[in-house]
Amino acid sequence: MSISADDIAYIAHLARLQISEAEKEEAAISFKNILGLIDQMQSADTDQLEPLSHAIETSQPLREDLVTEKNQRDDLQMIAPKCEQGLYLVPKVIE
């Protein structure tokens, strides 16, 4: 399965990664190789199988509805790159 430079650009955008023209070409090549590896799966007949997403097949545990957390804003914002008035700042979001 081949993949075009446009596909690479589209995926990079979905993943919010910046990718230069040169990197695009390189990525297309390594993608081709990786997809070659991945495509080996297609040889297996899996029609009758249920997908397995967890190795353990038990049920999700449930937590009691209790407020266990206190305000930790000061500690948590000490490691934040940019805060003001208790808010995290980002470049302007345009709706």
């Binding site: 266990t68 804003r73 208790g86």
Partner: peptide, 26 residues
């Protein structure tokens, strides 16, 4: 509920910004 869907942070309305956001919520 009293707490969030996946964490023990309060969901009470009107709190100061980011005072009800714990390590999971962030």
């Amino acid at each position: 509920t009293k707490s969030k869907l996946f964490s023990g942070s309060s969901i009470e309305f009107g709190a100061e910004p980011n005072t009800q956001a714990n390590v999971f919520d962030l």
